[in-house]
Design a protein around this nucleic acid. Structure first.
Lengths: 211, 211
DNA sequence: ATATTATGACCGACCAGTCAGTCATAATTG
DNA sequence: CAATTATGACTGACTGGTCGGTCATAATAT
């Protein structure tokens, strides 16, 4: 009834389990045995799908950024006013966080940080040739075009778009991190509003005055 | 029966060594033997000063935040225009990073992330009862008074100062993180300028128009 | 349809390496 | 010499990865 081909679904189950384990315990403390257990398979089987712990983590890493890139790309793919796009990106980010946090897997979002940390550690640079800074710049580059667009159109101040994009995404990322830990003390909607208030108005060219 | 520190200087040396080791290898992979070696003492001696690895890390954690809090507090202690204070804080942050990065201890700044990560994990499971979110809010509270001041004085927009402070510090933190990894691709001065341009103008009440 | 054989996914006991923490001893100090 | 401090060899617990064996299913034969 159930055929047993080497199963893509099982591979996915392992990755999903690994996310939870690495998020909760870290790459170093997360145990293969726990991953296997959570995936509902034997420990040996894990090694039928991945050749090492680090390879599992690399898969998690890839998965994470691919989803992130796909999410943002899709979000701002349609032609749209640059201002609207920025608002969308901010709103989406907060909502994405809330979704992560409300999820039954309480601490899964920590994988975010673990990946960040491992990404920074240069030992990790080798694995699957994933360069963290390259991946990050890939993400900045999703945003840069519409920052450019806004500047071209004279809606945004004529600042260096490369640096502006960097600041926008980095700031958003920091806000996400802090929101994770302090979410109980702040109001999602208020944060959304104020974030947009500050960033948009900081970015928009004053319309009434020709400074 | 942890003996009292016999030699405060040696204790400091252990902490300094621990910072480098934990920064480079992480809490879990960093070895006591390495810390001892870097501190120029025997492994057993470490246990004369700290009763466990986690206790060492807790000391690093405390040390880090105390320095951070002291730095910012001192920076903005003098009476000063709120706008000037914000500019100071931004400039100081970038300069502090550059100082960390130019330091001979190449990767020491990673302790920043390691602390962050461990801080997030289960609110740092009891160790020394350090609550990470509490520490963070202690830091926000350094900034909040002058945000309040700026709002009272009608210089800043009348936004909720609690949320504004959160966003400011969180954003700054994120920018720091990204600056760490991508510093080679961006210009410190340009980032400083643009950061202030965006944040200050987003925060300042438009003076010419009475919307 | 049923028996026989081939396949490879699955498993977990085991091994070899690692490391936090201990403790018997050595060095140092007063 | 006694007390204090330093030390590193040692140990026990732990875990990543391996490997020989099992068994459900597929393929083939009758």
């Amino acid at each position: 009834m159930t055929p047993l081909p080497k199963d893509e679904a099982k591979r996915k189950r392992i990755i999903a389990a690994a996310i939870r384990v690495f998020a909760h315990d870290g790459l170093s403390n997360g145990k293969i045995a726990t991953i296997a257990e959570k995936a509902g398979i034997g420990k040996g089987t894990v090694y039928e799908y991945f050749s090492s712990k680090e390879e599992i983590f690399a898969a998690v890493f890839k998965d994470f950024f691919n989803q992130m890139i796909a999410g943002y790309t899709q979000l701002i793919d349609a032609p749209m006013d640059p201002v609207k796009k920025i608002e969308l990106v901010f709103d989406y980010s907060y909502d994405y966080l809330d979704q992560l946090l409300e999820d039954e897997h309480g601490q899964d979002w920590l994988i975010f940080l673990e990946i960040f940390l491992q990404g920074f550690r240069d030992e990790f640079k080798g694995i699957g040739k994933l360069s963290f800074s390259t991946v990050l710049r890939e993400i900045y580059n999703i945003f840069k075009p519409f920052v450019d667009e806004g500047i071209q159109a004279g809606v945004f101040k004529p600042l260096d778009s490369e640096h502006v994009t960097f600041i926008l995404f980095a700031a958003l990322d920091g806000i996400s991190l802090h929101y994770f830990i302090n979410r109980d003390h702040y109001d999602n909607e208020k944060l959304k509003t104020i974030t947009k208030e500050i960033f948009l108005n900081g970015l928009l060219k004053p319309q009434t005055e020709g400074a």
